[in-house]
């Protein structure tokens, strides 16, 4: 099975889109739409935790739509990373953690990066592309 990552979003704690990337030709969005979708996701994530029947809810982790899956990772500081993938792609939780690791290493530790602002870091782009490409080929498993 060829696992495919369609899009990757990083949103800051107030719901602003700070990084967006699409992979391949599927699911390409224009800039305005990606911004809107990111802030929409931020609010739905918050509402989902309000509707929890049990205490201690931290929001949506996996959304299964008809044609894709959306996996979301929220860091302790409120930064959210979410990816859309082909339905039924396994091992994405792990991959999101690895992406978060790259984010802390190459974005947060970059002295020229201003927190909560759009990400423009060459090393992050490079390592992220490598990770997504490698995992895509390996079927996103065994890591």
């Amino acid at each position: 099975m060829a696992a495919t990552v369609y899009n990757l979003f990083v949103i800051n704690k107030s719901g602003g889109l700070i990084f967006y990337k699409d992979y391949g030709t599927h699911g390409r969005l224009d800039t305005n739409d990606s911004l809107r979708l990111a802030s929409l996701w931020h609010s739905m994530h918050a509402i989902s935790s309000q509707l929890s029947p049990v205490g201690g809810c931290t929001g949506i982790e996996l959304l299964e739509a008809d044609t894709f899956d959306l996996h979301c990772f929220q860091s302790l500081t409120g930064t959210k990373i979410f990816v859309t993938t082909e339905s039924g792609t396994p091992g994405m939780e792990n991959m999101l953690r690895l992406i978060y690791e790259l984010y802390t290493d190459y974005v947060l530790k970059n002295p020229f990066y201003e927190v909560e602002m759009p990400i423009r870091c060459e090393l992050w782009d490079l390592n992220l592309a490598q990770l997504v490409r490698k995992d895509g080929k390996a079927g996103l498993t065994g890591r």
């Binding site: 931290t58 299964e64 044609t67």
Partner: peptide, 10 residues
């Protein structure tokens, strides 16, 4: 495109 489920930690 609709959806059929979502999951949170709780």
């Amino acid at each position: 495109c609709s959806f059929h489920s979502f999951r949170t930690n709780t």
